[in-house]
Design a protein around this nucleic acid. Structure first.
Lengths: 320, 320
DNA sequence: TTGTAAGCGTTATCAT
DNA sequence: ATGATAACGCTTACAA
């Protein structure tokens, strides 16, 4: 086992040429005489020479590194994101550095700085703190794209959750559900999924009397909230939209103790099309993650548009 | 927005000292007079100076980069692996480069070479091709650890699947199941899970007559195989071990069409403790992924042991 | 076609 | 305590 990596210089000496010639043989083969070139190649092979990317990058060669900063690696959705980010990066010859900011603004900033100090060519970020974006924009020239979220004045690629809510609701209405319930966090003003539902109601000329709102604290994720609701209210909706698959799952669980026959008449739509909806066989709104990553990287490298955003349309995966 | 990153040299000029002094202020503050030091710091702050890691690495400073090469990023298990690898790496001040070899030997080698050319300090790898390991071992001095697999003569950290099978079977026997079935790929000789079951049978003095083998081609993953089996054979086992949660799920599905009451009497154990077993509420054998990563990185950086391997013991997660 | 040499941004050794 | 300078491995004018 060689203890040190062989350098261009050493290859050059071995071959009996100057180091510049070795460099040329690699980067501009046509400028090196075939005989020499082949000889150089053979030594490169023999000694497993690999050019030092750090040295190249010092000479102004692009780093070919992409950074991906997510705030959560537990979530199935972000794990898919990683998969495609690596795939797309690799396809265009880039290496992916993955970081988790754990929803911590300070950690997010640290991660950004690490990426900058490693000369990444671009950053995909699911951001935690707008100040960090401001930092990126104002003090660096490294391009970045916000994924899966819309933040004004920054380049974003995200799936329209409003549209998602609308599609889900349209589907239920089209399937003759006369009363529709939304289960999700309604304390927040920006419940876009719910807004999509409202849109659908308006579009279909339905009275909001037929819309049931079930507030669910998604930070807690315990089904007792739902059981409480069902014990206090008569639940008459047959079309149900849950703010995500997990919530839908909790809904199903709490349902089991309340009304079993109901299962047959109702239609449930979740969000994110995770393994949950696929296993439990209910419909779900899917985000086009691969497209999201592709678009993000496309924007990342398109010089001109500094704050162009792209909104993607989600897709309803219909089950049973 | 600054168009170029500020360098140490520029900071030095701004402060009115030599570049070496700025370097010292950062790396050996005690060697710089407090007044100057603070002045330098203030400029570093002001201009958001970040040292160029590539340049540092050229001077022999460690890269603080870890590489993680997996052959599949769809699998829930490997996605967990990523999460912990990033976490542990970050905790010890390292940056993680993630790569997918897609079960392709050539791609795996490419990935390895990219990591080497980026001067990674160590590589965690779920390998595809032993030749690539040989390459790593014989032509480089970069330490690497094989995760989640045992390969002779290489440092490995893995969970004993034999033990997993044994634990699962012990559990079923202890819960008075008189006949036990294993569903999984039995065409392969190295079905370690099955070997663990055999061990448990021997240990518990049970005749192998009470062990039912259901061969399941896990590369296909369609439940028709199981339905076929059940239509041809009388299935009398009440303790069932599936080679993983997904197989267990398919088993449950095919069961629905065959015998519903059976559900109450049987006990099912899967592997990997994924969201499937948690949702469908059956027991599962869990791998200690965080420990696996921690051990791997520990071994990676422990100079002396070149081919020390660590076997971890999985844990049974009991449900319903 | 090939070689010489400067320079990228650091660290570290040597003077001062 | 500070500055000048060499060196890390490479790319790229420029010279030969």
């Amino acid at each position: 086992m060689n203890n040190k990596k062989i350098t261009m210089n050493e290859i050059a000496k071995l071959v009996g040429v100057s180091q510049a010639t070795v460099s040329r043989a690699i980067n501009a083969p046509e400028k090196v005489k075939p005989y020499l070139r082949e000889k150089i190649y053979s030594y490169i092979e023999k000694y497993n020479f690999l050019p030092n990317e750090n040295a190249k990058s010092m000479r102004g060669v692009k780093s070919k590194i992409l950074g991906l900063i997510l705030f959560d690696l537990s979530n199935q959705f972000y794990l898919e994101t990683i998969k495609y980010a690596e795939k797309v990066a690799r396809k265009i010859g880039y290496t992916l550095i993955l970081m988790n900011s754990e929803k911590d603004s300070k950690l997010e900033l640290e991660n950004i700085k690490i990426l900058l100090s490693r000369n990444v060519e671009g950053i995909l970020i699911a951001p935690v703190d707008n100040n960090n974006l401001k930092f990126l924009k104002e003090t660096t020239s490294v391009p970045f794209v916000i994924i899966n979220n819309f933040i004004n004045n920054y380049p974003c690629v995200y799936t329209s959750t409003v549209k998602g809510g609308e599609i889900a609701c349209d589907f239920l209405i089209k399937n003759n559900h006369k009363k529709i319930a939304y289960i999700g966090n309604l304390s927040n003003q920006t419940t876009e999924k719910f807004q999509g539902i409202l849109k659908s109601f308006k579009k279909n000329n339905l009275s909001l009397n037929f819309l049931e709102k079930i507030n669910f604290d998604t930070s807690k994720m315990d089904k007792i909230q739902l059981e409480n609701y069902f014990s206090k209210n008569t639940f008459s909706s047959t079309g149900i939209i849950a703010s995500n698959d997990e919530v839908a799952y909790l809904f199903l669980q709490s349902l089991e103790k309340i009304d079993k026959d109901f299962l047959k008449t109702m239609t449930l739509v979740g969000f994110d099309n995770t393994i949950i909806s696929s296993l439990l066989n209910f419909s779900s709104i899917e985000q086009p993650i691969e497209e999201l990553i592709e678009k993000s990287i496309e924007i990342l490298f398109s010089k001109k548009n500094t704050s162009l955003s792209v909104e993607l349309i989600p897709k309803l995966i219909i089950r049973n």
